[in-house]
Design a protein around this nucleic acid. Structure first.
Lengths: 221, 221
DNA sequence: GAATGTGAACGTTTTCACAGCA
DNA sequence: TGCTGTGAAAACGTTCACATTC
């Protein structure tokens, strides 16, 4: 697959940069809503709390989108970032584990608005299976491969308990899913080349407890 | 506040390292359950998918916990990491926004087991206010300051919609909260020195769409 | 002998500073 | 003149390799 503009290989962009590109993308969305059509690197970078030079370096991974002396055209830059981030297309996904977190994700508007579309839900609880949840059919986890067979599904979310996560991951890989967002607090291992991103709420919480333990207290009364 | 062992200042440990320390901590917990009392840097680092040299460097931020030629004593290292990560004490927190995500968090065992304890919930919906949720009282957001006045609360979680997040953040800061975990998809700004960590599910999802857009397809049938 | 702890080498990311262009 | 795009420098993080200690 070739994805280059001006010799730039988007697959080589570091993950930190991708995350910032998404911030710029979100900030640009806001500017569009506000009817602002032009923005400079320092204005945009202020909106997302980064240095202007960093914004420009980040964009340099992707191409040249601005006009010297003038800045960037908001909607043009937004479209370009959409392209690089893969947000110009629809992404179908499935979810395994219709617990509280799973339900929260199915209902999360932020995914819908970015073109992520849920196609099927999997669980093991007899009461849930067969009952559509918000119009999405719920199947037994063992049916994953056959159910998603002819759908164009490349993304799977795992919101099952930790002890079930690895087996669910294996089933997703078997079903030819190529990217997984894992919310279970375990490290998943796969033989096949699968892109796995982990979201660990305890880990984020621990950054708070570390901070509070070792930085000056605000005040003591 | 002084938090040092052998001249090491725990407040200077980079965030990436903190996150890995928590991984080691979790892996050690598993070893304890399995009854393993001694571990080498290479064994432990294999468990969490990092290089042995990195594990040792990471620990070097904190002190010297091993024995040359022998390795680390599992429970000793676990305790030391607990101390550095602030996990040896109980942390009270409050939550603003009892939506689906809020409910998922209140019920998340991973926080309880790490000593995080929810003390109050805040919302604006008349039906929710006054009805305890899982034994936690639900108050109107405007009551935050008075409600948590005499509780020892330093952490606040924000799970309200994006447009309400900044005002909730302001109220938390007013109520003397010093660390915030923000799940709303907006950048929060504060005048006071507050530690804010953001959890953004769309952002993680976009790393998947970027990956799928620009790396070789697994196969084409 | 075995495995830690750590300086030095290496690689990556951020910041600086300014050349180049509208 | 103003702001982008980019080399060069600085800061930061990771890996190597080995002296040190048990």
């Amino acid at each position: 697959m070739e994805n280059e503009i001006n010799n730039r290989d988007f697959s080589k962009i570091p993950k930190v940069v991708i995350k910032r590109l998404f911030k710029y993308h979100s900030a640009l969305e806001k500017l569009i809503i506000d009817g602002i059509s032009n923005v400079s690197s320092s204005e945009l970078s202020d909106d997302v709390n980064v240095k202007a030079s960093q914004l420009r370096k980040d964009l340099a991974y992707c191409g040249e989108f601005g006009t010297r002396g003038k800045g960037y055209e908001v909607s043009y830059l937004h479209d370009k970032l959409s392209e690089i981030l893969g947000l110009q297309m629809e992404w179908n996904y499935i979810l395994a584990g219709l617990g509280r977190l799973g339900r929260a994700l199915v209902n999360y508007k932020g995914l819908v608005s970015r073109g992520f579309k849920i196609k099927a839900i999997f669980d093991i609880s007899a009461e849930k299976i067969g009952q559509p949840y918000h119009d999405i059919m719920v199947y037994h986890i063992d049916e994953m491969q056959s159910v998603i067979q002819d759908m164009d599904i490349r993304i799977g979310l795992i919101t099952v308990p930790a002890d079930a996560a690895q087996s669910v991951c294996d089933k997703m890989v078997e079903a030819k899913i190529s990217a997984i967002l894992n919310f279970a607090p375990v490290l998943l291992k796969t033989k096949d080349k699968v892109f796995i991103e982990r979201v660990d709420i305890s880990r984020e919480m621990v950054t708070l407890s570390h901070y509070l333990s070792h930085h000056e207290c605000q005040e003591k009364d």
